[in-house]
Amino acid sequence: MRRHLPWIVLIACIVLLCSAALLLSATAAHGSVANIYQDGQLLYSIDLSAVETPYTIDITDDTGTNTVSVETGRICITDADCPDQICVHQGWIDQPGQPIVCLPHHLIIEIVGDTSSDSIDGLSQ
């Protein structure tokens, strides 16, 4: 029996470590993360809960520029040179299910993962 003890310890350690890793990755997936896509390509993935000092990002391509403002827990487009300004008018978002879309610039900002009981999967509009 004593002979097997090291192997039991080894297996126990592996099981424990893997459970911990799984738990960690699951918890991470529920953070408030904003993903910014242009033309379907992910440009930025920002953990909004970890933002301490507000900052802005200018996203420019040949269609124009959007200025994205990032604060703790929320994100918005504060300025854009698109004709309709729909993205700017939308204001801040802090939950999944209500992505900001700038159609003329093919830009999407969406928040993924959130445990808020009032969050939605999609917005019918």
């Binding site: 299910g97 209500q98 509009q125």
Partner: peptide, 30 residues
């Protein structure tokens, strides 16, 4: 989600219902 048309197949993977917000016509929230 086709530009605000939300269509679902089955339930969510955990078996629960999809939660679809109805837009507030006077704002951007639901």
């Amino acid at each position: 989600n086709l530009g605000g048309n939300v269509q679902t197949l089955g339930a969510k993977p955990d078996g629960s219902a999809w939660r679809v917000g109805i837009e507030d016509p006077s704002g951007d929230d639901y």
